[in-house]
Amino acid sequence: MIPIAYFIFLAMCSPIALNAMLPALPAIAEQLDIDSSMVQLNYSLYLAALALGQFSVGAVITKLGNRSTILLGISTFIVGGLVALITNSLWLMLLGRILQGIGGAFSMSMARALLVASSGKDRAAQQMGYIVMAIAFSQSIAPLVGSTLNTHIGWQAIFAFSAIQGAILLLFSLKLIKPAFEQPQKLTLSMMLNHYMSLIRQHSFSRYTMANTFIALCFYLFISASPHLTKGLSENNLAYGYWFILISGTFMLGGYMSTLLNKRLSLDQSIQLGNSLCLLGASILLILQISLPTSFASLFLPMSVVTLGRGISQPSYQSAAIGAADKLAGMAAGLIGFLQLSFGAVFAQAVPLMMDLHPSMIAFAILGCTLLAKCYAQNYRNKKIATDHALIFF
């Protein structure tokens, strides 16, 4: 049996590589003499590559098998880190980030797939929580890791750190993942697209998935804007990393609370509670941005309420959406991740344009996303109640 520590380390690599770069973006823009929109591509293209990787990993596994897929993913991740490390060209750096993102998507997906294959469904369900916690933990420490490396060595050290992580993972993977005979299967692009279209046409799946996407966009908007909004607020270069721990910490707390609440409440009730907290935090964030000078506290404290609500609602959103997919549950999970990340990439790239209009536009956008999520979820709930009443009447 493969140790759970391997799966945890495997799942942590990509979130660290993604978020460790955030505190260094202003420094990269200054050193390479580029504007904020261009340097933001470091983050948004990584998200887009993650989305593409999650969209395609199922077909790759079907064709190559588990071992070859994980080795391909980790190798791509390492190559991406090395390409970004050895260049001062923005375009080669972005190529490296794309390769990192695709490899990271394979690694995160395979962490779950290999855990189930190694431990069995029942035991894997008990251990999957460790992977979720590991991802949240890596998101919380990544900006601090990035701030430390950028301050004491330089932003190139962040890419070196990621490449070293990947190399260690590759060695463990070669040792722990044994070759196995796996008959290649045929899954054409048209078959995949037909499955995805059938999911999108399911009203319940599309409603829950879009609401989940809008709630996730609150996080992507904030994480993309916060390094620029907080630039120059403190002489301590590590301050951003310390404050960011609050965001990931409340997300982890919300996830833990969801496991307790879902024992007493229905999925829709948990979703409504989480959405209400998101709306409260977003409203406070906008009020503070309009009425007070920008500070770490005025940004991170209300946003921690938003992420607490997201931690409560997101597991319920995803469980409800996947549950509605029936036999296409695996593809549904991939489609949820693809939509969340692809929308996140587009909105993350729009952040510099929004900030050029006015810094408070980010708070307006976050509030708008919470309202849209609440409307999507509430409309589905109202329609479901009306349908249930009609069935009772007849």
Rank of each mutant, 00 (worst) to 15 (best):
N237P: 01
S198P: 02
A377L: 09
S37R: 14
L265M: 14
L221S: 13
Y380L: 13
I366W: 12
W155C: 03
F9E: 06
D356Q: 14
L217F: 15
L18S: 09
S89E: 13
D122T: 13
N42L: 09
F137Q: 10
G323C: 01
M210P: 03
K121D: 11
L115T: 09
Y376R: 07
G96W: 10
L233R: 06
T387M: 15
L189E: 05
F300V: 04
I78C: 10
I98T: 13
T250V: 12
K384Q: 11
L171P: 03
Q340R: 13
F347V: 15
I366T: 02
S14E: 15
I70G: 12
S266F: 12
I322N: 02
F347G: 05
T213E: 11
N379D: 11
S291D: 10
M331I: 13
Q318S: 15
R264K: 12
L114A: 08
S206L: 09
I141W: 01
I223Q: 07
K178A: 15
S173T: 15
A321T: 02
T188C: 08
A124I: 07
Y130N: 03
L99P: 01
L217T: 07
F296Y: 11
G232I: 04
G58F: 10
L328H: 06
F137D: 12
A20H: 06
F7L: 03
I177P: 11
L277N: 01
V145Y: 06
Y208D: 05
I102Y: 11
L94P: 00
I131C: 08
A5S: 09
A333D: 04
I28T: 10
S190L: 12
L25Y: 01
L335N: 00
L286T: 00
I164W: 00
K384S: 14
A363Q: 03
L229E: 07
A390G: 05
W91F: 10
W91G: 14
V306W: 07
H152Y: 15
I177F: 08
F300Y: 07
S56D: 09
M252E: 01
S283I: 06
I2N: 11
L71Y: 12
Q40F: 11
I4M: 10
F161H: 08
L273A: 01
L292P: 14
A282I: 10
I284L: 09
L367Y: 04
K374C: 05
T188S: 14
V39C: 05
L265N: 15
N66S: 14
S270W: 00
Y43F: 14
K384D: 12
N66F: 07
L32D: 04
G58L: 04
A29N: 06
F181V: 10
L45V: 13
V57S: 05
I8M: 15
S118M: 09
L371G: 01
G281E: 11
F159G: 03
A167P: 08
E235P: 02
S118G: 07
H358R: 01
L277W: 04
I164R: 01
L174M: 15
D122H: 13
M110I: 07
T230V: 13
I312D: 01
F77H: 00
S75V: 06
I271K: 10
L169S: 05
L341P: 00
L90T: 02
